[in-house]
Simulated assay, not measured.
Amino acid sequence: MKAVIECATEDECKLSEIELLQSRLSKLLQKKRCLIVLDDVWTEDQDDWDKLRPLFRGGLDGCKIIVTTRSQKIPFMMDFPKSPFYLNGLKDDDCWSLFKHRAFGCGEEEKYPNLTRIGKEIIKKVGGVPLVAKSLGSSVRLKREEKQWLFMRDCGLWEFR
Results as ranks from 00 to 15, higher is better:
158 W>N: 07
99 F>R: 00
82 K>F: 09
119 G>L: 01
104 F>G: 01
63 C>R: 03
102 R>E: 15
38 L>M: 15
52 L>A: 05
43 T>C: 09
50 D>T: 10
135 S>W: 03
152 M>F: 02
52 L>C: 06
60 L>C: 12
98 L>N: 03
30 Q>A: 15
32 K>T: 08
161 R>Y: 12
113 P>K: 06
112 Y>P: 01
143 K>V: 00
107 G>D: 10
112 Y>G: 00
53 R>M: 11
79 D>F: 09
125 K>P: 00
16 S>K: 14
18 I>F: 12
90 L>E: 04
24 R>L: 05
154 D>L: 08
152 M>C: 14
46 Q>I: 15
13 C>R: 01
50 D>P: 00
31 K>M: 12
106 C>W: 10
1 M>D: 06
29 L>Q: 02
160 F>W: 09
80 F>R: 05
4 V>W: 04
148 Q>R: 09
104 F>W: 01
155 C>I: 07
156 G>R: 13
65 I>Y: 04
145 E>G: 03
49 W>L: 03
14 K>R: 15
9 T>W: 06
103 A>P: 00
151 F>Q: 13
5 I>T: 01
157 L>W: 11
20 L>K: 14
17 E>N: 14
123 I>F: 00
22 Q>H: 14
125 K>S: 08
53 R>I: 09
75 P>K: 05
70 R>D: 08
150 L>Y: 04
120 K>H: 10
24 R>K: 15
156 G>F: 11
78 M>V: 09
120 K>I: 02
77 M>L: 15
76 F>T: 09
115 L>I: 06
1 M>H: 08
69 T>Y: 02
39 D>E: 11
113 P>F: 05
23 S>V: 06
132 V>F: 02
133 A>Y: 04
126 V>Q: 01
104 F>A: 02
18 I>Q: 12
7 C>Y: 13
37 V>L: 12
30 Q>K: 15
8 A>N: 05
97 S>L: 09
8 A>H: 03
39 D>Q: 06
14 K>F: 12
16 S>A: 11
103 A>L: 03
64 K>E: 11
134 K>I: 12
58 G>E: 05
26 S>G: 12
161 R>T: 11
155 C>W: 13
100 K>Y: 06
150 L>K: 10
62 G>P: 03
147 K>S: 14
54 P>M: 04
151 F>W: 13
40 D>R: 08
77 M>A: 08
43 T>S: 14
7 C>Q: 15
147 K>I: 13
88 N>S: 15
161 R>F: 12
89 G>F: 04
98 L>K: 02
47 D>M: 11
68 T>H: 06
49 W>H: 02
136 L>F: 04
17 E>Q: 14
51 K>N: 13
96 W>F: 04
63 C>F: 06
55 L>A: 01
132 V>C: 04
